[in-house]
Each structure stands twice: as C-alpha cells, then as structure tokens.
C-alpha cells in the first residue's frame, strides 16, 4: 500500500493564547480529492499554511510524499501547487507572463515551460486574454488566472484554498470541472471551502473542522448516514397548536418537530415513507398546509448535529 501523499498527525498551532489548530490529523491518499470543510475561523487556512511549511507549529508531524515537510523541502515543493484564497498575481505582467513567470519557479527548461504555460492557459480558458493585464480581467477570470499560476507546472499535489470565493456561478462550475480534470490526470487535491455543496459534489472524502479540531471525516454518504437525521420534511402551514405538534412528534421515526413562522420542520431518523405518514396525519387532522418538501440530510445537518452550530455562520 502506497504511503499517503499528505500525512498530518496531531498538529497543534497556537497564536498566543488562542489555540488555532488543536491536535488535528489528516491523511490524503494518492489520487484523492479531500475536502476540508469548516466555518470561518475553524483553522483550515492555518492548517494549510503549516502543511506548506509557511507557518511554524507547536506540535505534530507533517509529511508530504513520505518525507518531513520543512521550508527546505524543495524536492517536495517542486510537486506542490497552491491556489491561494486571495488572488496572487503580478499586476504589471500580462496573463501569459504571469503564468510563465510562476512556471519558471518550478520548471527550468524553456521548451517544457512554454508547453506547460500554453496548456495551463488553455486549461483555464484564458486563451483570448493572454495579453491582458490582471486589472482588465473580471473577478472570475482573475480566479482562473490564479488557478493557472498554481497548477501550470503539473504538480502531483494541489492545494485549493477557497478558490471560488466571490466567483460567478459559470466560472465556479468551470473551476470545479477543471479540478475534476486535474484529479483525473493524476493530481491529489486538498480542497478547502465553507461551501458544503461544492465539497459534497467534488470530494471523495471530507474532513469537517471546527475550532481547530477534526470533528468528523468520511465520504459525504458516510457522514450523512452517521447522524440521526435521515430525512427532513418541511411543511408550509400556519402556526399549529402545541397539542398537534406533540402528536406529530409521536409519529414513527419522527424525533424532532419545530415550527418557525409558517415553516414546520419535521426531522426523521430512519424509516421509509415518512412523508406519507406525516401527510396522512395532517389530512386527518384537517390541517391546512401549502408546499411540502422532503430533503435528505446535508453536510450542514451533519455539522449541526455534531457541533450544535450551522456550518455557515
């Protein structure tokens, strides 16, 4: 069995008295897209900075490609690509020059570099904008340029730190598609975000972080089945009496009933046809209701159940 591409064991990082990362562990297998999910301030970016040997940490071990990661690990760094949360490009260089410049930090050979640069620009769809300077690009195009600069040298490990922030849906879809393609070409990816939909869609395995800790990890399906909630039924209705709410609570597999405004939320654990049972009851009790929806649990539900907080704060 091959060694993990990235192995973080019991990482601890403090900023003064504040514990930013609290005995955090993580493993990234080869060919995997690992999602690192957590609310703002959970320690995702700090963890990545420690992983990249940009930050000193207080305790723990970090290994990349089977070797300890230090600021002098130039061999490992050659195979790492980073797409920062904030756009990191040079304003006075054109799109082509930016990609070429950052590629040149990794690739010595001119011919190879030229080929890689063309490919990276084509990959992110910026062929028409080669001569444009960053100031002339929209937010989405700028993000694409940011990505191109990070992956141009065809790294084996790519770290995406919230790459779709403030990006339009079209560009976001293009970015996510691009990430899938990179993975298909053999790159192992760590993808951080606080957008659970992206992480759910993209990542084969997810680690949820909160307050610097690894709260839970697994595939999206595993995480969802690990919690009590298996279905949430939402009914639009006027405010109901406590008696009726209590009776709904007695329906099989219903474990939580809450009403906020005109929305009645009914959470069920396990079972099937929960929706039918609930509808029958409401009809029987002659309760007026409008729209009814049934949702499977999301990662937010997972997070909420484990931590008591919403993922999006």
């Amino acid at each position: 069995m091959s060694k993990p591409v990235v192995e973080i064991k019991n990482l601890v990082k403090r900023y003064g008295d504040q514990l930013a990362v609290d005995h955090f562990s993580l493993q990234l297998e080869e060919g995997e897209i690992l999602g690192l999910l957590g609310p703002n301030g959970s320690g995702k970016t700090t963890t990545l900075h420690c992983l990249l040997a940009l930050l000193k940490y207080d305790k723990g071990e970090i290994q990349v490609f089977g070797k300890e990661m230090t600021p002098e690990s130039y061999d490992s760094k050659k195979n790492i690509g980073v797409v920062m949360q904030n756009v990191a490009v040079v304003d006075t260089l054109s799109v082509y020059e930016n990609v070429d410049f950052f590629c040149g930090l990794y690739i010595r050979d001119k011919e190879t570099r030229k080929k890689y640069v063309e490919e990276a620009i084509a990959f992110v769809g910026l062929e028409e904008y080669k001569k444009y300077r960053p100031k002339k690009l929209s937010g989405g195009l700028l993000r694409r340029l940011n990505i191109a600069c990070g992956i141009v040298h065809k790294p084996k490990l790519i770290i995406f730190d919230e790459p779709t922030v403030a990006v339009d849906p079209q560009s976001r879809n293009a970015i996510l598609e691009g990430i899938r393609t990179l993975n298909q070409r053999g790159a192992s990816i760590i993808y951080t975000s606080h957008y659970m939909e992206e992480v759910e869609e993209l990542c084969s395995r997810i680690v949820i972080m909160d307050k610097g800790k690894n709260v839970v990890s697994g595939s999206a399906a595993q995480l969802k089945t690990s919690i009590r909630n298996s279905e949430t039924v939402t009914v639009e209705t006027k405010k109901l009496d406590q008696e009726i709410l209590e009776e709904i609570r007695q329906i099989n597999h219903v474990y939580q009933v809450t009403q906020s405004g005109d929305k009645l939320k009914i959470k069920c654990d396990g079972g099937s046809h929960n929706l039918v049972h609930i509808m029958n009851y409401l009809i029987e009790k002659k309760v007026d209701f409008g729209r009814v929806t049934s949702e499977l649990p999301t990662l937010n539900d997972v997070f909420l159940e484990i931590t008591g907080k919403e993922l999006r704060d």
Binding site: L52, L54, P71, Y74, D75, K77, K78, I80, V82, M84, N86, V87, A88, V89, V90, F102, L105, Y106, C149, G150
Partner: peptide
C-alpha cells in the same frame, strides 16, 4: 513586500516554490 509570505499573497506563492528565499 512581494517576496515575503508575511507581507503579500504573492510572497506566499514564492515561498511555496522550490527556490530559496535568498535567491529570489
């Protein structure tokens, strides 16, 4: 400012690269 990770995002990119800080 451009070369140091503590001062700019581009600095982070430099310092993540396989090239000594002193050389850049």
């Amino acid at each position: 400012k451009e070369m140091l990770a503590s001062q700019s995002e581009i600095g982070k990119r430099y310092e993540c690269g396989p090239i000594k800080r002193s050389i850049t």
